[in-house]
């Protein structure tokens, strides 16, 4: 049974009159990647910064690695690695110098090369931080967070503003952290990112956690099922869908069946393949996007705004 590394109970943070975090509770287990996902202003960063001891909770309890966030700041900071949102480093110092600075603060003497190589930053070690691309800056930030060999890492919006290629490279880095046995707490407004990386996630909206669980559980519970869309359709196709789907939606020239059972999806497809008439068929798997839309009544755009 994995050990619990974070426990949050009824955590509240207010900036009068705004309630940024409203009585949230969750746990994070050792070795997992746990995501807080939601639009801008949902309370993700506030929650993570409370856990990093960068903010003081208004009420509720939170412990990190068994230490209380309000009383054991020093002990927590010694044991965690953090990459805050919109962080920066000394712009005119090289990657190596910035990482060494953090190592000196932690009073550790790590194998710098292995850390930089692990995250693909060894070649860029002598480049100034100011000359790095956005993606490399994030990777350098993760190197800094990792240099003290912490058991727990907080990555606050690690891919926001990056181009798709840089985002995918950062995902690879985060996957490598998992293979290194690190526990990672991630915040993001990218649903795909959460789906790709997380073991478990909490959907946070308006300062409240509106759903949490493993990604599969969330999709299964809130994703709205697998959809088979056929166009054009005839009476026979309509009959097959009416018999097998939980729900059928007709539009002008297409028809859509919604399924919560994959076996039923298989049967339906087999029945549809037997049809003589030519038609176009789409199978749409549910995703975290669907989960969020269903829970919050809207989608989150590229910039993290709710639309």
């Amino acid at each position: 049974m994995p050990e619990e590394v974070i426990r949050v109970e009824n955590l509240v943070k207010t900036y009068k009159p705004v309630v940024a975090v409203n009585s949230i509770s969750f746990t994070v287990k050792e070795g997992e990647i746990f995501s807080l996902v939601g639009p801008n202003g949902a309370g993700k960063t506030t929650t993570v910064e409370i856990l990093e001891c960068l903010r003081t909770p208004t009420s509720g309890k939170a412990s990190v690695l068994g230490y209380d966030v309000t009383h054991d700041e020093k002990e927590i900071k010694k044991r965690i690695g953090a990459m805050p949102q919109d962080f920066s480093a000394f712009e005119r110092l090289t990657v190596r110098e910035n990482v060494e600075l953090i190592a000196r603060i932690y009073q550790v003497d790590p194998d710098l090369r292995s850390v930089l190589e692990e995250l693909g930053m060894w070649e860029a070690r002598d480049r100034r931080f100011e000359s790095l691309s956005g993606g490399m800056k994030r990777r350098a930030g993760i190197c800094m967070a990792l240099i003290s060999n912490p058991v727990l890492l907080f990555l606050d919006e690690p891919t926001t503003g990056l181009d798709p290629q840089a985002r995918k490279e950062t995902w690879d880095v985060i996957r490598r952290l998992r293979s290194m046995g690190k526990t990672v707490v991630l915040t993001s407004h990218y649903m795909e990112e959460v789906e790709q990386l997380s073991d478990r996630a909490a959907v946070i909206y308006g300062g409240e956690i509106i759903a949490q669980g493993s990604v599969d559980e969330l999709i299964s519970a809130y994703g709205g099922g697998i959809r088979i869309r056929v166009s054009p359709y005839n009476d026979e196709i309509e009959r097959v869908l009416m018999e097998t789907a939980q729900k059928v939606v007709r539009e002008d020239s297409s028809i859509e069946g919604v399924f919560h059972d994959r076996i039923q999806v298989g049967r339906t497809l087999a029945a549809l393949y037997g049809q003589d008439e030519k038609y176009h068929l789409d199978i749409v798997e549910p995703s975290m996007d669907n989960v969020f839309s269903r829970l919050a009544g809207g989608r989150v755009d590229e910039r993290g705004e709710l639309i």
Binding site: L54, K77, A82, D86, F87, S88, A89
Partner: peptide, 16 residues
């Protein structure tokens, strides 16, 4: 400038 660009926050998240 260090406060604005998040450098102080980066250091504050360490045991410094």
């Amino acid at each position: 400038e260090y406060r604005r660009n998040g450098q102080v926050k980066r250091l504050a998240a360490t045991p410094l």
